[in-house]
Nucleic acid binder design. Structure first.
Length: 572
RNA sequence: GCGCCCGUAGCUCAAUGGAUAGAGCAAGACCCUUCUAAGGUCGAGAUGUAGGUUCAAUUCCUACCGGGCGCACCA
């Protein structure tokens, strides 16, 4: 454990309590909680758990503990019993000192050693080529990027990969639509990926309306998998367009993966594995297709090969798993997809186990993004494309920025608007628990007030502006004892919690914990900002101490935003 | 039909089994000669239903009611 002020404080309290009270001999740091209201105290010990072994009721225990008056006196200024709780009031000066000391190396502040160097591969967002990139994909990217950062901060060695499905029936539908209805047409320059996405949607719609086209589409895929020259050439060209477009989106959203795998590169190998499974009797033929019956496990039937001989995700995934572990020397792999694929992953992991592959693989399923009028589907055209939404937010942000800073250059306004748009979009995805469906509300996405990314950036910009104006006053010794105001203390206490929030968010695969934390930090800063003037502090010493606190808060906010991969801006 | 997820304020979301269930938006009343009003302050407003476990349930269990998703040739 690195220098973590609250860890130091809590363990001091725990050690002292254990020494003084026999019935607390098994006390752990986890037993300490934060009171719901700071008027009780800063850290609390609920006494329910010890009542039985001590033979007293919790309130009596709390009173007995509080009577000792002195516990970890270096950190605690008062102990009060309130019903079954013992509340510890922290000394604000030693708290602030511990926070400042820990932040001397801000890079390490939020970290923990949960991972102990374990090598983990994280696979996301894996969009398909030849399809559209919509705001649902954005949630996947945001989660993947934030989780990667969180895992790294928790001591894991991360390998990010993207696995691109460039060979499946979606590709066939797109190419079929292209050849049948748009032969010879050229895509608008720079918008090729988008154009293909629209073709896919058209192909899917036409096929749905006219099932009699199915053999034609199947033939395209069969030719593709059989490496037919003409189809293959068209595939190669369009695939490159699509990948270029996707790469642009993913890079803008912060994904730093190595694209190591393509469906087209492992599909043949997967077919071999399916043949082996068939031979061993693990898989069997049914209705012309190859399946594994998993109904005994409650997983239904897993389809490995279609009756026309072409492969599926499952076909390739059997080969991919082996390849991943071999190439990257990883201890564990994580897949991030939306929950609709949860059953599929259970099937896949079971199939891998049946085939003798027992490496640790997990699937993180997040709920999908839907629209107020229903589920998004590129097939039906009811989608909000990432590009469109981003541009709409950018222009709204540019307009707001221009209003506030008419003197700024066009370039500066554009850069600021871009950062605001990404912050809004990304924070909007990350602030929700991954297990909750997001009903994407355009109006909310365009808002810059309240629990939003721009609010966090606004707070950061205010901190920055304040620090810029006080640069000269920041020097010299800081007397932390001058930070006695409740707003100052609450801000310091909350800032000190970053390490435990990072650890918890990692353990729960839930970046929203960090998002909520960062927002709360900004709210507390706003309270401090309102009540504790820095530039017009009562005297120089107080000003110095407050500057140090602002720096600390800014450090913590900066780390939080970086972990969430939200861009920082100095002014707005 | 079976399985998974979700039901908290008008809306969108918080709350390791613990103290008076917190925020934002919307609606209402305030605060810019005062460190960026993209902000702050003050009111109003909620745990789907019925049981159970527990000293204590929004949280765990069961049933029901609502909603979403998944359950062989899609990805």
């Amino acid at each position: 454990m690195k220098k973590n002020p609250l860890h130091i404080i809590k363990s001091a309290i725990v050690e002292d309590l254990k020494k003084r009270h026999a019935f607390l001999s098994a006390l752990g740091e986890d037993a300490l909680v934060y009171p719901p209201d700071t008027k009780f105290g800063d850290i609390a010990l609920p006494c329910f758990a010890y009542a039985k072994s001590a033979g007293k009721n919790p309130a009596e225990l709390a009173r007995a503990i509080a009577e000792s008056r002195v516990v970890a006196s270096e950190w605690v200024s008062a102990i009060n019993a309130a019903g079954p709780y013992v509340n510890f009031v922290l000394k604000s000066d030693s708290l602030a000192r511990a926070l400042f000391a820990a932040l001397k190396k801000p890079v390490f502040f939020g970290t923990n050693d949960l991972g102990k160097g374990e090598r983990v591969m994280i696979e996301y967002p894996s969009p398909n080529t030849h399809k559209e990139f919509h705001i649902g994909h954005v949630r996947n990217v945001c989660l993947g990027v934030a989780l990667t950062h969180l895992y790294e901060a928790s001591g894991f060695k991360m390998a990010q990969v993207d696995y691109t499905n460039d060979l499946g029936s979606h590709v066939a539908k797109c190419l079929w639509a292209l050849m049948k209805f748009h032969k010879g047409e050229k895509p608008p320059r720079g918008r090729e990926a988008r154009w293909l996405g629209a073709l896919y949607a058209e192909g899917a719609q036409k096929l749905e309306a006219h099932p009699e086209y199915a053999p034609e589409v199947s033939e395209v895929l069969q030719k593709l998998e059989a490496r037919d020259k003409a189809v293959r050439a068209l595939w190669k060209k369009t695939r490159a367009w699509s990948i270029k477009g996707m790469d642009g989106y993913l890079k803008e959203l912060g994904a730093r993966y190595k694209r190591e795998f393509f469906e087209s590169e492992v599909k043949d190998e997967g077919k071999k594995i399916v043949a082996e499974l068939l031979e061993k009797g693990i898989a069997k033929k049914s209705q012309g297709a190859v399946i594994i019956d998993m109904s005994a496990q409650g997983f239904g039937v897993m389809l490995l090969l279609k009756s026309d001989g072409t492969g599926l995700y499952a076909t390739s995934d059997l080969a991919l798993a082996r390849k991943k572990f071999k190439l990257f020397k990883i201890d564990r792999s994580i897949n991030i997809t939306d929950v609709r694929q949860s059953l599929y992953f259970k099937q896949l992991f079971h199939a891998l186990a049946l085939s003798g592959f027992t490496q640790k693989m997990t699937h993180i399923g997040y709920e999908f993004v839907r629209l107020p009028e229903g589920a998004m589907a590129s097939r039906t055209g009811r989608v909000i494309l990432y590009e469109d939404m981003r541009d709409e937010i950018i222009s709204a942000a540019a307009e707001e920025t221009k209003k506030r800073h008419p003197e700024w250059s066009a370039r500066k306004i554009a850069d600021t608007a871009h950062a605001l748009a990404l912050a809004g979009l990304k924070f909007g995805m990350l602030k929700y628990d991954p297990s909750k469906v997001i009903v994407f509300d355009k109006k909310e996405a365009l808002s810059f007030e309240g629990f939003t990314g721009p609010y966090l950036l606004y707070t950061f910009a205010r901190m920055n502006s304040l620090l810029k104006k006080t640069r000269s006053g920041a020097r010299g010794l800081v007397d932390a004892a001058l930070l006695a105001d409740a707003h100052e203390k609450q801000l310091a206490l909350h800032a000190a919690r970053l390490p435990e929030i990072v650890q918890s968010a990692t353990e729960n695969n839930n970046p929203s914990e960090l998002a909520q934390y960062a927002y709360k930090l900004c709210q507390l800063f706003a309270g401090f900002y309102e009540h504790c003037p820095v530039l017009r502090a009562p005297n120089k010493e107080v000003a110095r101490a407050r500057v140090a606190l602002v720096q600390a808060a800014q450090n913590v906010l900066e780390q939080s935003l970086k972990l969430l991969d939200i861009p920082l801006i100095q002014e707005m």
